[in-house]
Structures are given as structure tokens and as C-alpha cells.
């Protein structure tokens, strides 16, 4: 099993997860990557994604696992010849088994390119619409920390089973600034799997499995 780490940025941010699934099957076909198929009545390509990214949000840490006999270097090269730069692969990992990223990922880092440098996270509330009703939710337990590396404000948010959508944080920040912030001002920079009481960068995890 090979895992590609790829970016999703600029125009490609606006491609929804469902559309991305369709694109990947085309990318693999035009890249002529021999993907293995499941057995059974309705065979499907053995390709697995990390958790869906909200439409409009950029990322430099998306993952795509592909079951193929091809070697990592060749996959990387062929894949990159078959995608726009806005979906380019930046690294490959070879794994002994399916790393089950969707099931394992528990957190992700997002950089918010906004005038904020620091915010008070205790009792942080967001407001959103759900089935026509306005919901106010305290999400401070889903924010695992904040950093301010190279002057850019970043948050580590719950991802996976319980997740916190970065676009909801952004609209809250926008409200505080009384302006409309563009989703493309958010970028996912890393994803993590849960360890005993901590987080392990997916890159490290993939080197291990």
C-alpha cells in the first residue's frame, strides 16, 4: 500500500470531497497507475482518503492511500504528471498495510491567515445553522491548542469522529472583526493520529506502519 501526501490549494480548494473522489479515479486512469480492485460483484478501486476537507479550505497535508504494486517513486512521478499543480503530491510513504487514516486521525492543524495573533480559547463559542435552527456551541474542548509560529495564527482542532470545522471558527473570527473572511485564508498544515494522551504527526505514523 502506497500513501501519497498531496496539497489542495487555490482553485482546487473549491472541489468538493465527492467530486474529488471522481477526479482521483480519472487521475489514476490517465496516470496509468495499476490500482488493485476489490473482489466481488461490484469491484471498486482500492483507494482510501483521509477525512474530507471543507470546501474552500486549502491544505498542504492531505493523504491518499493506493493499493498498487507500483513503487513509490514511480507512483509519485506519474501522479504528478496527471494532476494540476494545485493538487500536487509532495511525498510518498510505503506501508505494509492499509493505514486506515480516516479511522485513526484525531486532530489537524490549521493556519488562519487573519489579523488575529492570539485569541482567548476558554469557553470559545461558535454559532451556526443546523436544520434551519441556530445552534450555539462551546467548542473549547475541541480546540487542542494554539500556536503563533512565524507570526501566523494556528489552531489544532479535533478531526475525525468528533471534529470541529475550521470554517466555523473562521466565521466566528470574521464576526469579531466585522468582516467576511475568505475560506481560502485557512490552510490545513498537518494531521495527527491519536497516541496515549498525545498526537503523532501522520507522516511519522506512516513511516512506522
Amino acid at each position: 500500500m502506497l500513501v501519497l501526501k498531496y496539497v489542495k490549494r487555490a482553485d482546487s480548494c473549491f472541489i468538493s470531497h465527492i467530486d474529488l473522489l471522481r477526479h482521483v479515479s480519472r487521475i489514476l486512469r490517465r496516470a496509468d497507475i495499476p490500482v488493485k480492485f476489490s473482489q466481488g460483484f461490484n469491484p471498486h478501486a482500492l483507494v482510501f482518503f483521509s477525512s474530507p476537507l471543507a470546501v474552500g479550505v486549502a491544505s498542504i497535508a492531505e493523504y491518499l492511500a493506493v493499493d498498487t504494486d507500483m513503487n513509490g517513486g514511480e507512483l509519485f512521478e506519474r501522479y504528478n504528471l496527471a494532476v494540476p499543480v494545485t493538487l500536487a503530491a509532495i511525498e510518498t510513504f510505503e506501508c505494509g498495510k492499509n493505514p486506515n487514516l480516516q479511522g485513526k486521525i484525531t486532530a489537524a492543524d490549521y493556519v488562519f491567515d487573519t489579523p488575529f495573533r492570539q485569541i482567548d480559547l476558554s469557553g470559545f463559542q461558535i454559532e451556526y445553522e443546523k436544520k434551519g435552527k441556530t445552534v450555539i456551541e462551546d467548542v473549547s474542548d475541541k480546540i487542542y491548542g494554539s500556536t503563533n509560529a512565524d507570526g501566523r495564527f494556528a489552531l489544532r482542532l479535533a478531526s475525525g469522529n468528533t471534529s470541529l470545522r475550521p470554517d466555523r471558527i473562521l466565521s466566528e473570527l470574521g464576526k469579531r472583526l466585522r468582516t467576511n473572511l475568505a475560506l481560502s485564508d485557512i490552510c490545513k498544515t498537518a494531521q495527527y493520529v491519536g497516541t496515549d494522551g498525545g498526537f503523532e504527526d501522520v507522516d511519522e505514523y506512516l513511516k512506522r506502519v
Binding site: 482553485d11 473549491f14 468538493s16 470546501v55
Partner: peptide, 24 residues
């Protein structure tokens, strides 16, 4: 581009309007 990206977050099927298709 920047102005467009701001709008795209609020519309249905934003990929209709951003271009960047393969084989452009």
C-alpha cells in the same frame, strides 16, 4: 482572484466558477 475567492465560500457548487480544470 481574491475578490472571487471571498464570494465562492458562500455559493452553491463554487467549483463552477473557479476554472483550473485539467487540460486547460
Amino acid at each position: 482572484n481574491d475578490k472571487l475567492y471571498k464570494i465562492l465560500a458562500d455559493v452553491e457548487k463554487p467549483a463552477r466558477y473557479c476554472g483550473g480544470e485539467w487540460n486547460t
